[in-house]
Write a protein that binds this DNA or RNA. Structure first.
Lengths: 168, 168
DNA sequence: AAGAATTGTTAGCCTTGCCTAACAATTATA
DNA sequence: TATAATTGTTAGGCAAGGCTAACAATTCTT
């Protein structure tokens, strides 16, 4: 588990294009400029010029008026982005109990900047709360209670107080 | 608790400048271009031009060759950024047990893009694990154990298994 | 107080990444 | 198949945000 924070190679915008291309291809088959344009909510000329920059870096293949494809390298960059996106989105919804829409929005932004260590910890955290076989000291349940009521459930507080008593 | 995701007004770069100015002022007294330059690791002309943009938006006051000051509005923007930074940094170190350096780096990036809802939840989460008065079903302790060993402590697993037995 | 050192500004350049307007190629349809 | 609709490209513009080189103001030192 070495820390080799590989200086981020691509801009958020580039990563967004690669991600969009990967996802469109998974959903349909052939990826067109217009689809990318709609998905990322930018105009077509912006897509064309982004694709140019991406080909220069060897991440996509795009012949004029034709479909867009990822190179193996583009593929692997896209995969990384999608992976980060999914982990973040799960962390927000499952661990922090945030609504899907906000979770997606935040994941879209944070996927471009988070360190691999923090991401790894978030993934571990989800594993942790899911693998926890206990029901009474149940993390997500108590957390949600706390979110709603601003304090822990009665029985927890009670036990906490006992403790403090004993300490005196 | 209404969701009024006030369309983010300022760029990450602008926010960085405001944050840096606020923190330098808190540490020393009068803020100079050279200090900002060193702190943000950009050249002085970049600072000068950034300050120009910031004055146009009414966020700082800067007379040629003189000190830099925040306007009340700049102040409040800076305060927001610092607040987000601190919450994120605490979340990473205290909740996810990430080293201070990585936590700071990530906070610096994420502070510019996270939604107020997610931030609020992270703050609540820290409150939660801190206010938890229980020791045995101790979240941070068990989480750290899980981080190190890849599974929960014996007694948890044991109890989990008991449960499954009963279910059969 | 004069010269040296430091600090700050200006001018000008570059890239990214978006945009609109105009035109060109492709595809669909009468 | 000719024309209309759609899709894509080119050209050109603009703002943000960084840079260097050259110059100007300020401050420090003797």
């Amino acid at each position: 588990m070495v820390k080799q924070q590989v200086e981020r190679q691509h801009t958020p915008s580039m990563e967004d294009y690669l991600e969009a291309i990967a996802m469109l291809r998974d959903a349909n088959k052939a990826v067109r400029v217009s689809q990318i344009s709609r998905r990322l909510k930018v105009r077509m000329p912006s897509v064309t010029s982004a694709l140019e920059r991406l080909s220069e870096k060897g991440l996509v293949v795009h012949e004029r008026y034709r479909y867009v494809e990822l190179t193996p390298e583009g593929e692997s960059v896209a995969e990384g982005v999608v992976h980060r996106h999914e982990a973040l989105s799960r962390f927000f919804t499952e661990a922090l109990d945030i609504d899907r829409e906000t979770a997606e929005e935040d994941a879209c932004k944070i996927e471009h900047v988070i360190s691999s260590l923090s991401l790894e910890r978030m993934i571990k955290f989800i594993e942790f709360i899911q693998s926890c076989p206990l029901e009474e000291p149940n993390f997500p349940k108590r957390y949600k209670y706390y979110l709603e009521h601003g304090q822990l459930p009665e029985e927890c507080l009670a036990r906490g107080l006992e403790k403090e008593e004993r300490r005196k």
